[in-house]
C-alpha cells in the first residue's frame, strides 16, 4: 500500500529545492520569497486569482516580520481546504449510494473499484454498477475489477440505456441487501449538454428506485489537469450536485493545485486521493500532507537546514 509520504515524495523532492531555500531565509517575507512562492503555487496549478489573493494577504499581514514563513503559508493553505472530514461508510441509509461522475479519462472506473474495495475492508457488502454503456469494453473493465474486489456487479450492454442500468443496479442492491452501491458513469465532457442531461436522467432513475437522492455524488478530477478542472467541477455540480471530490493520479508529479478553487467554489470537501494503481491505493484526503507535498515537507526542510548550520 502506498502512503501519502511515499506517493508525494516525487512532488516534494522536485519542489522542496527552491522554496525550501527561500523558507529558510530569516529576513522576513520579502519580494523574492513571495515571488518564489508565487511560482511554486502557479507551477502546482493553483489558480492565478487565489495566488494573488494569498500573496497579497501575506504581504499585508506579515511583510518584514520575523516569523516562521513556512508555518504561516502552510496554515493559510490548509485552511483554504476546509476542515478535514474523514470518510466512513455510515450505518444508514442502506444501500449507501455513491454516484461517480467526471470527464473522460480521469480514472472513474478505477476509483469506483477502489471504493468498493474500501467498503469491503470495512466489512461491508458493496455492489458495483457499470453504467458506461458507450465506451468500448467499459463494462468489461469494471467486471474485471469486481472480480478482483470480489463483489457483486451489475453491468449494462454496450449501447444500453445508462439510466436503466443504474435503476437495475439499485434494484439489485436492494434485493441482495447490499450495504453500498457504487455507480460508475460514463466519462462525459461537461460542455456536451445532451450527455450532461443523460447524467440528470441517471440521477432521476436512481432516485425513483431509491426513493431519495443518491447519498453521495463524487466528482473525479485528474491531478494532472489544469484550470479546466475548476470549470468541470462547476458544470457537473450544476447538473448533479456534488458532495465530494476525489483527486486521482496524485502519485505522479502533478500537484492538483486546482482543488483549492474547487473546494472554495463548491463548498465540498476532498474525500479521497488516488495514490497508485493498486486497489489499496486510495487514501482519505489529508489536507496537511497535501500542502506539505506542495511546499516541500517539513522534516526534509529541518534536516536540510540542520545540515546547513
Amino acid at each position: 500500500m502506498v502512503t501519502w509520504i511515499d506517493a508525494l515524495s516525487k512532488t516534494r523532492n522536485k519542489l522542496s529545492g527552491a522554496l525550501a531555500k527561500v523558507f529558510r531565509k530569516s529576513d522576513g517575507l520579502d519580494d523574492d520569497t513571495l515571488e518564489e512562492l508565487e511560482d511554486t503555487l502557479l507551477g502546482a496549478d493553483v489558480s492565478m486569482s487565489l495566488v494573488m489573493e494569498w500573496t497579497e494577504a501575506l504581504q499585508k499581514g506579515y511583510r518584514g516580520l520575523q516569523v516562521s514563513h513556512r508555518e504561516i503559508v502552510h496554515d493559510l493553505l490548509v485552511g483554504a481546504l476546509g476542515e478535514p472530514v474523514a470518510f466512513e461508510w455510515p450505518e444508514e441509509p442502506r444501500p449507501y449510494t455513491v454516484l461517480i461522475v467526471g470527464v473522460n479519462g480521469t480514472g472513474k472506473t478505477t476509483t469506483a473499484a477502489k471504493l468498493a474495495h474500501h467498503a469491503r475492508k470495512a466489512r461491508l457488502k458493496p455492489l458495483l454498477a457499470a453504467t458506461d454503456t458507450f465506451r468500448a469494453a467499459g463494462a468489461d473493465q469494471l467486471r474485471v475489477w469486481a472480480e478482483r474486489v470480489n463483489c457483486d456487479v451489475v453491468a449494462g450492454q454496450q449501447g444500453a440505456d445508462a439510466a436503466a442500468v443504474a435503476y437495475d443496479a439499485v434494484d439489485a442492491a436492494m434485493a441482495r441487501n447490499s450495504d453500498a452501491v457504487i455507480i460508475d458513469t460514463a466519462g462525459r465532457m461537461h460542455t456536451k449538454q445532451p450527455l450532461m442531461n443523460e447524467l440528470g436522467k441517471v440521477r432521476r432513475a436512481i432516485k425513483s428506485r431509491l426513493e431519495r437522492e443518491p447519498d453521495e455524488t463524487w466528482i473525479v478530477l485528474d491531478a494532472g489537469m489544469g484550470q479546466n478542472a475548476i470549470i468541470q467541477a462547476r458544470q457537473f455540480h450544476e447538473m448533479a450536485p456534488v458532495t465530494g471530490v476525489v483527486v486521482t493520479k496524485l502519485d505522479g508529479s502533478s500537484k492538483a493545485g486546482f482543488v483549492f478553487s474547487v473546494v472554495k467554489e463548491l463548498g465540498v470537501p476532498v474525500r479521497f486521493a488516488g495514490l497508485g494503481e493498486g486497489l489499496d491505493d486510495l487514501a482519505v484526503f489529508d489536507p496537511s500532507a497535501f500542502v506539505d507535498a506542495l511546499l516541500g515537507s517539513k522534516q526534509e526542510e529541518t534536516v536540510q537546514s540542520g545540515k546547513g548550520r
Binding site: D45, V103, G224, G226, S254
Partner: peptide
C-alpha cells in the same frame, strides 16, 4: 496529450 492537462505537461 489531454488538452486539459495542467502545468505537468512540460514534465510529461
Amino acid at each position: 496529450v489531454d488538452a486539459a492537462i495542467g502545468q505537468e505537461s512540460v514534465h510529461v
